[in-house]
Design a binder for these strands. Structure first.
Length: 640
RNA sequence: GCCUCGGUGGCUCAGCCCGGCAGAGCGAGUGAUUUGUAAUCACUAGGUCGCGUGUUCGAAUCACGCUCGAGGCUCCA
């Protein structure tokens, strides 16, 4: 039994024509309408034939469960053969459908659309989180059956159709085919590929496909983000809106500046667009109607506004008004949105991993045609690898997912193979037989965290829909207006999520017995200077002046042991202890965190200039900003 | 939205099962110590035990309602 449940404002149908298997019906059943009803589209399958009673029982349970969740009092039972490719005999189907109807009658106001007729129907989907659900009900012992992912399409109506059209069927149920693509170009069936040598990819695949994500504890980065005074929950705001303390704000600014620098080198023009838009703007309305409500909305005088969930709107509306010659293509614009807003469901928000307000670098590239788009895609793919690498997230830390339509794959096989070659490891492939989303090709780099949960960082998509929707044109060599092919790219993914990934990565490293740290250019304090006694403070000041980086002085009246420990707990890359010996010799003793092991610090005697040179080499070409807090640690407040 | 668990000084938590003076460690303040590589010692301050109602001689503890948070479901353009 395949079930597709839609909680609708209304559903109505009208029979058009009988098929050879049609049940005989009363005139009154030839049309029907229910308001505020849960509609159950159902397909009875071959596997249901041996035990119809069991199928009835379990289907009824499932429907009742959902009806209770959405508080529906009216049910429309709608036979919908297109949900399955392995249907039962019509006789069994009718008996099961009638059985379900009988079991539910009395508890609900039930209407059943007749079986075996071509019917036209209209449905208005409510669009709340539970309004669209699909269920496969299999007999006991048949759990291994093929998984079918249903991608819901909302607010669709088939009013123009005489019969339930093939197009609607295709859009209601787009099938995903999962594969593993190896660098040699082989496209393996996911079940046939041995992932045991790729444990991280295995985790990602499990997360993506089997959706098995039971986890018993909170993710480790939540404790770390607080303990390191990076970020924290803000109870005075909405959930998923974080506060950032000075150290976290510094890291965030550096990451933002880095991504902007890289995209600027890449030729992107930085722009800024509004964070709120008119819900009733004709172009935006069309776009919003395609998706269930997931945005913050604001009532302001007569207008109904929503907060942007990406920078697409602003940039596309700008593109629409621009005069663009083919000479300007590929044309790149970037905005670093502070913020983009998505009203994710309450239970889905976790620490810095998924937020309702987040900072998103969002670049769009207008290309003359698909060929140019494909070559741009390739360049941006490589840029993303490089950007994440500098941020401290290496190729081993994430898994690649590439998703495309079958048509795209058939005409770009070599190109896609090359993407796997570039990263030189197997990648997960999702292929759709029809295009449902606005893109024909996308990739993401998915970070797999300490609890085996995956989340996307970098992504690029080839969009074949929005140039049309926003009426974006360029003038070609012939002087004709043409629609460009558009690329969406976020080189790093959300900035907050990069911090999450770094924290989770270090948490995993700690588990394995390594010493955790941030890349030097991102460390809030790069050098901690610890004068042993007060008389060494002056020399400590001198050393800090010689270092052209974020060097602070722990002048608190604690023991050396304690201050060393504190520096370690702050993951400071270089720790300098200054006492009589140093003042005398003019050299310094540096503990180098990146070379140390737990309980085995690596210390080196060097001059302040040596240390400075070493750090300058490490942070060369990367953004820099001064200390986010007072140089003297004794003057700092505690944030947590 | 549904299910489960939780809310006790700034932080982390014990106490709750089985009702009887509200506790510890860290942090903060003060004093002593001026220190050579992962927690110096002593003292002090700091709490309507999330909110409300009920049961009781007596409620942090039991019951009910509310609220906020976390995890799961669902979802993730």
């Amino acid at each position: 039994m395949q079930l597709l449940l839609i909680h609708s404002d209304y559903i109505e149908y009208e029979v058009k024509k009988s098929t050879p298997v049609a049940e005989k019906i009363e005139e009154s059943l030839k049309q029907g309408r229910l308001e505020d009803a849960l509609t159950a589209f159902m397909a009875v399958e071959k596997v249901d034939e041996p035990n119809p009673a069991d199928t009835i029982k379990r289907t009824v349970e499932e429907i009742e469960k959902v009806a209770a969740q959405v508080k529906a009092e009216r049910l429309m039972l709608y036979p919908y053969a297109h949900l399955s490719s392995n249907l039962s005999s019509p006789k069994v189907a009718v008996s099961i459908l009638k059985g379900i109807e009988e079991a539910l009658t009395g508890k609900y106001e039930v209407m059943r659309a007749p079986f075996g007729w071509y019917k036209a129907f209209k449905i208005s989907c409510k669009g709340h989180p539970l309004s669209e659900l699909s269920r496969s009900i299999l007999p006991e012992g048949e759990q291994g059956a093929q998984e079918v992912q249903v991608i819901p399409s909302c607010a669709k109506s088939s009013e123009d159709d005489d019969v339930v059209s093939e197009a609607l069927k295709a859009e209601s149920v787009a099938k995903s085919y999962w594969h593993i693509l190896t660098p040699d170009g082989e496209l393996h069936n996911i079940d046939d590929f041995d992932l045991s040598e790729h444990p991280n990819l295995q985790k990602f695949v499990d997360y993506e496909i089997s959706k098995n994500r039971a986890v018993e504890k909170a993710p480790p980065h939540v404790e770390l983000m607080r303990r390191l005074e990076i970020a924290d929950y803000e109870p005075g705001s909405d959930s998923g809106n974080m506060r950032f303390y000075p150290k976290g704000k510094l890291m965030k600014t550096l990451l933002e500046n880095y991504v902007l620098d890289e995209t600027s080198k890449f030729g992107a023009m930085e722009v800024e667009t509004p964070i709120m838009y008119d819900m009733n703007h004709p172009t935006l309305k069309k776009y919003l109607d395609r998706f269930p409500a997931r945005q913050y909305s604001i009532e302001s005088d007569k207008r109904h506004l929503f907060l942007r969930f990406a920078a697409c709107f602003g940039q596309f509306l700008m593109n629409h008004d621009m005069t663009i010659s083919y000479r300007s293509l590929p044309l790149k614009m970037i905005e670093l949105t502070r913020y983009s807003f998505r009203k994710e469901q309450r239970g889905e928000l976790v620490g810095l991993r998924r937020l309702r307000a987040f900072t998103m670098p969002d670049m769009h590239t207008l290309c003359t045609d698909m060929d140019q788009a494909v070559s741009q895609f390739d360049e941006q793919y490589n840029m993303c690898i490089n950007v994440l690498d500098k941020i401290g997230i290496k190729l081993d830390d994430y898994e690649v997912a590439i998703r495309f339509t079958r048509d795209f794959y058939d005409s770009n096989r070599d190109f896609i193979t090359n993407l796997a070659k570039t990263v030189d490891k197997p990648v997960l492939v999702e292929m759709w037989d029809t295009r449902f989303f606005y893109f024909v090709l996308k990739f993401e780099f998915n970070f797999v965290d300490a609890l085996a949960k995956a989340s996307a960082l970098s992504t690029v998509q080839i969009d074949v829909e929005n140039a049309e929707r926003y009426d974006i044109n360029y003038i070609n060599t012939e002087g004709e207006a043409k629609k460009p092919t558009v690329l969406h790219c976020s080189p790093s993914g959300a900035i907050e999520r990069c911090i999450y990934a770094l924290l989770e990565k270090e948490a995993m490293a700690m588990e394995k017995g390594a010493v955790p740290m941030f890349p030097v250019w991102l460390s809030p304090t790069q050098v901690r200077i610890i004068p042993i006694a007060q008389r060494h403070l002056e020399f400590a000041e001198q050393v800090s002046e010689q270092l052209k980086c974020r060097a602070d002085i722990d002048d608190r009246e604690d023991t050396i042991g304690k201050r060393i420990r504190e520096a370690g707990r702050e993951w400071i890359p270089y720790v300098v202890v200054i006492g009589d010996k140093e003042v005398e010799n003019g050299t310094i003793n540096v503990t180098i965190r990146s070379e140390s092991q737990p309980n085995k610090p690596v210390k080196m005697e060097m001059s302040a200039e040596d240390l400075n040179n070493r750090i300058m080499t490490e942070i060369e070409g990367l953004p820099y900003k001064g200390l986010p807090l007072s140089k003297l640690v004794s003057m700092r407040p505690k944030f947590i």
